[in-house]
Amino acid sequence: MTMIQALRSAMDVMMARDDNVVVYGQDVGYFGGVFRVTEGLQAKYGKSRCFDAPISEGGIVGTAVGMGAYGLRPVVEIQFADYFYPASDQIVSEAARLRYRSAGDFTAPITIRMPCGGGIYGGQTHSQSPEALFTHVCGIRTVMPSNPYDAKGLLIASIENDDPVIFLEPKRLYNGPFDGHHDRPVVPWSQHALGNVPEGHYTVPLESAAVFRPGKDLTVLTYGTMVWVSECAARETGIDAEIIDLRSIWPLDLPTIVESVKKTGRCVVVHEATKTSGFGAELVSLVQEHCFYHLEAPVERVAGWDTPYPHAQEWAYFPGPTRVGAALKRTMEA
């Protein structure tokens, strides 16, 4: 399966298993989504389970909070992560805090899917990686898969989870892995082991990171598209990097991170999002807090520049294998 098919399969499985799962968002119903992720779901489950929504992110998330309070398990889509901002109040002030402020009287077991990330000439409003705006909010979970297998397992786990989950989907990975070499043809998921996705129900647990590539020289902490870029950088530099795909960005799997950094003694954090106050800052802080006496070198961050995401300068902006590779070398030489 592609990541698109895997995500669709996750919703199909959950809609079949649980009558309380409903799927809606802009162009999600009849048309099947601008990225085809919900294709066929309305035909299979009916308009009361999968339907189109007005162009109102605040309305989509706000109604989902109300449905969650009723007892449904809504899975809603924001067409691009760049457009979640009108729903900020409902996410931060409502979904995230409902359980806390009502002492468990009401809950918001909702999943908010958002295609994110760049590398597609999406320009300023079709490329952003806003995960740090969510990880700073207590009460929500932020998740991002890097391959079809994890995408399905993590989405099912997110839907089943009783906390509100922000589910970020790197649209650059929808049809195949992407290592940052934009000049080379895309290899489809059908030619990759992680494109082998079981048809039925399975989960990838939240708060569990994956050692994507075992190594002994240094630890790369990353997620989403940058998992593939980091692997490419390791291959091209010959550095035996241990690449950890966080999968759950927050709350995260700290033991896997700490164990790896204590083993390698070096760490590079890689993400597409802008650098300052990005999630990488939290990762660097956690590593120095928990691994200080094991560190042989300063922890580096490779991130998007602190600029809006440009159109023409896409590949100067996107942290590709060259930039990541240079950071790996600097960290090894430090």
Binding site: R49, G62, T63, G66, M67, Y70, G71, D89, D105
Partner: peptide
């Protein structure tokens, strides 16, 4: 429903709750 300090947020949530009742 649990009262929030943020104004108007509950107005759309009420609609969502009503939609859920209709869905079920």
């Amino acid at each position: 429903f649990s009262i929030s300090g943020n104004l108007a947020t509950q107005f759309i949530q009420a609609v969502g709750w009503a939609m859920a009742s209709a869905i079920k």
